[in-house]
Amino acid sequence: MHPSSFEYFAPARMEEALSLLSKHSGEAKIMAGGQSLIPLLKLRIASFPYVVDISRIEGMDQIKEERGFLEIGALTKISELEDSNIIKDKYQILHEAATQIADPLVRNRGTVGGNISHADPSNDIPAVVIAMKAKLEVIGRKEKRTLNADSFITDSFSTALEEGEILSKILIPIPDTRSGGCYIKQKKSAGDFSIAAIAVQMTLGDDYKVRSAGIGLTSVAPKPTRAVKAEQYIEGKRVDNSVAKEISKIVVSESDPSTDFYGTAEFKKKILGRIAEDAINLSYERAMVK
């Protein structure tokens, strides 16, 4: 409950935030919703001399479709994602992930950008943006750049963000017709992190064969993982039970879970196999009717 002392800034503008980060380079931590950072601070697992709270910067909480992309501002609250009609109607995968994050209290404060940037291998949004082949826009003092979702997180709690950079928006390509996806999360109890979770998004051709697919995994490797081989295997196929089973095997082979409080590595693989099969079947079903 009692962090070591730090200096707290709450800039109202992006330029101000960037200049604070630059001024206190190496000693400042960005805080958005604070739902991961504050517990670390209060238990003194982490401490920083400066905390830059970016949550008051305006114009970073948009959810809109524009120029072929669904654009989500990094400061969009998880609860806003959960309540958005666009997301509910057209992006079930995101809606399902959002509604299963922690509890309503956390979702009311936690942000989409924070969920990604914290790079916890058990956070849910990264696998979804990987499966949706999103692009992440990052702002630094000098330049703006765009990264692919699957290369943004480099390791447990590590990202490709350079010192002084802030994740500003998530750009998700608007899915074609005959697209569908889902997020399946298996957890011990309500509000908990997952034992394993999977995000699947696919688009079918006129022949109902899978034209493209994205698969992201949560909690089963040191970082959120893209199941590339499984994606390749499914492309060009119609999904039936035996295909779904085969894909689930490939997904499991691409995972690298560790034994920890949530269970043994073998158990997590077993869970992953079963939810992968369900997720492939469900996504295909959804894509067929869209």
Partner: peptide, 12 residues
């Protein structure tokens, strides 16, 4: 390795 009241498994 049980690090929180949630990990400790208090029923919900």
């Amino acid at each position: 390795i049980t690090s929180s009241i949630s990990d400790a498994g208090v029923p919900l």
